[in-house]
């Protein structure tokens, strides 16, 4: 299996090609470890759970932002990759996908620190900006706040977000407007807005041109999300609610 990998040492960038022996079930993360452990120990990439729950390893793989740990090498090499997203300018930077190989590059729209590692500070700054913590009023009940299973189901769609930033790297608007809060932060804001326990008027926090109103509904965010979170739906609902309030 051939992997072509973006390299950056803080000053200059280039691509390296590696040949990695194939194993059944091998993921891109497995292949990166093979390289780090056997071929080039200077290769850097983030990792932790290797089970698609921690959100460490989002990167651009064959020009689609995804988690390296849940992406099978074989599917990519054999051209069975079914991921389809709307094209955006960041994908034109860098090399093209070689024949029968995997191209691994850092997540777009965030500054590269080293090799496949990006600086996520801005992503988390936008997350903090939406004040993502439950705010209740008055005395809390002795026991739990009661909630219906239906309310929980709707909330779960958004609490499933693992903050991997794949959506941030896939959103064409984030590529153009560096102040756009991005899909994950807005989905998080919406999650607190619909939480029946929360008393804050949440929507106005992103009622500006770099918040709800910047989204152009390309829906790349939902397509690349490893947890099927639909930020585009949250944004649509938030907008129509704000419009109704205006009327």
């Amino acid at each position: 299996m051939k992997l072509k990998i973006f390299r950056y040492d803080g000053e200059e960038s280039h691509y390296d090609e590696f040949e990695v022996p194939h194993e059944p079930g091998q993921t891109v993360l497995d292949a990166l470890f093979y390289i780090q452990e056997n071929l080039d120990d200077s290769l850097s990439f983030r990792y932790s759970c290797r089970g698609a729950v921690c959100g460490s390893c989002a990167m651009l793989i064959n020009k689609v932002p995804r988690l390296a740990c849940r992406t099978q090498v074989k599917t990519l090499v054999e051209g069975e990759d079914s991921a389809e997203i709307k094209h955006y300018p960041a994908l034109d930077k860098g090399d093209e996908i070689p024949e029968r190989a995997v191209l691994v590059e850092p997540l777009p729209h965030l500054p590269v620190e080293k090799d496949l590692i990006v600086d996520q500070d801005k992503f988390f700054e936008y997350y903090r900006d939406v004040e993502p913590m439950l705010k209740t009023e008055g005395e809390a009940p002795q026991k739990e706040y009661e909630m219906s299973p239906k309310e929980v189901n709707e909330l779960e769609e958004y609490t499933n977000c693992i903050l991997c930033a794949a959506c941030f790297g896939a959103c064409p608007v984030d590529g153009e407007n560096e102040d756009y809060r991005g899909p994950a932060a807005l989905a998080k804001l919406y999650r607190f807005h619909i939480d029946p326990r929360d008393n804050e008027d949440r929507l106005e926090l992103a009622d500006h041109e770099d918040g709800w109103w910047a989204c152009e509904f390309h829906t790349n965010c939902q397509k690349v999300c490893p947890k099927n979170v639909p930020p585009n739906i949250a944004i649509g609902k938030a907008r129509s609610q704000l419009q109704k309030e205006d009327e």
């Binding site: 739990e144 009661e146 909630m147 299973p149 309310e151 929980v152 909330l155 609490t159 939480d195 326990r197």
Partner: peptide, 19 residues
């Protein structure tokens, strides 16, 4: 557990609304 719920954790619920 109740404290975590008050902090914002979305636990699954029974039909009666309890955790």
């Amino acid at each position: 557990v109740i404290e975590l719920e008050h902090m914002g954790t979305v636990f699954s619920r029974f039909d009666n609304g309890k955790i």
